[in-house]
């Protein structure tokens, strides 16, 4: 898969847009986009450890915020750097009632603990905002300029 994300400019913060043919792909690309902002390009992260994580949300948007917030916690508090998403599954509820746990992402992430010899942080992300947040299925992706998939997401991160 080619790099399925791009960086968006925002006056005080920074944004990411990700693409994919499935919701899972968009979530994967967004996670990889975020870690690429956080680490300097010469930081090599191996896949020696695996972790399973699960988060829930009301809708695809809140699920995205929870997903990225969980990864930030893993990175900054658990010192666990992400190298890849090994597997990811998203549960979409059949009905859309106002259930905060209706949408669920369940993923196995790989990576390793932060080591000062091989890893360098470039950026501190304070949090994931709901500002200009989008997770959407494109009706006719072919008509979108530079379309790269059927799904598209956009997030602004506070830095």
């Amino acid at each position: 898969m080619s790099q399925g994300y791009e960086v968006l400019e925002h006056t005080a913060d920074i944004g990411l847009r990700a693409f994919g043919d499935t919701l899972e792909e968009v979530f994967t690309c967004m996670a990889l986009g975020m870690i690429s902002l956080i680490l300097s390009p010469d930081s090599h992260v191996s896949s020696r450890e695996k972790k399973h994580i699960k988060v829930t949300g009301y809708d695809p948007e809140s699920l995205m915020v929870e997903w990225l917030s969980e990864l930030l916690f893993q990175i900054y508090s658990e010192n666990f750097l992400l190298s890849d998403i090994q597997s990811i599954e998203i549960r979409v509820p059949e009905h859309i009632p106002a259930d905060p746990n209706g949408y669920l992402v369940s993923a196995t992430i790989s990576g390793e603990k932060f080591r000062t010899e091989t890893h360098k942080f470039d950026l501190e992300i304070k949090g994931v905002t709901y500002h200009m947040l989008k997770v959407e299925r494109l009706d006719s992706p072919e008509e979108e300029p530079n379309h790269k998939g059927k799904w598209q997401a956009q997030v602004i991160l506070d830095i």
Binding site: S62, V65, S69, L72, F73, S77, K126, G127, V128, Y130
Partner: peptide, 13 residues
């Protein structure tokens, strides 16, 4: 940062 993250979720609800 984490307090804000935690309570954004509370506030969403």
């Amino acid at each position: 940062h984490q307090v804000c993250t935690d309570y954004l979720k509370t506030m969403e609800r």
